[in-house]
């Protein structure tokens, strides 16, 4: 039993992080505001979870200016894709076993 739980990734324990990864997996690139709207979270909340995922190198953050406005977009990395897929498989196995 312990062996299965060990496959669950600590980085995805949080709902918002799960949400961020889900959105990034099916979209090439997502803007900050769009992500905020989809997940229905505050600026600060989203930023802190994004930076946690960025630290794990699961998410790539791209900051640039569109005209004078700063524009931040997010992308999932190869590592992030694999980690999330493993996490989902672990979740599925956990549900099957019980």
């Amino acid at each position: 039993m312990k062996g299965i739980i060990a496959h669950l990734n600590k980085a995805f324990e949080n709902r918002i992080r799960l949400g961020i990864m889900s959105v990034l997996l099916v979209n090439d690139e997502v803007e900050f505001n769009r992500m905020k709207e989809l997940l229905d979270v505050s600026d600060g909340n989203l930023a802190s979870h994004i930076s946690a995922l960025e630290k794990e190198e699961y998410v790539l953050v791209k900051k640039q200016f569109v005209g004078k406005k700063p524009n931040t977009t997010y992308k999932v990395t190869k590592l992030g894709k694999k980690a999330f897929a493993d996490h989902l498989t672990a979740l599925e196995n956990l549900l099957k076993k019980k």
């Binding site: 709902r15 799960l18 949400g19 889900s22 959105v23 099916v26 989902l88």
Partner: peptide, 21 residues
């Protein structure tokens, strides 16, 4: 614990759908 995981999976599914379609 199990309900929580099920809920997570449901949410993942709905977000994937909502964000891309």
């Amino acid at each position: 614990e199990q309900e929580k995981h099920l809920q997570d999976l449901k949410e993942i599914r709905s977000l994937m759908e909502k964000s891309s379609k």
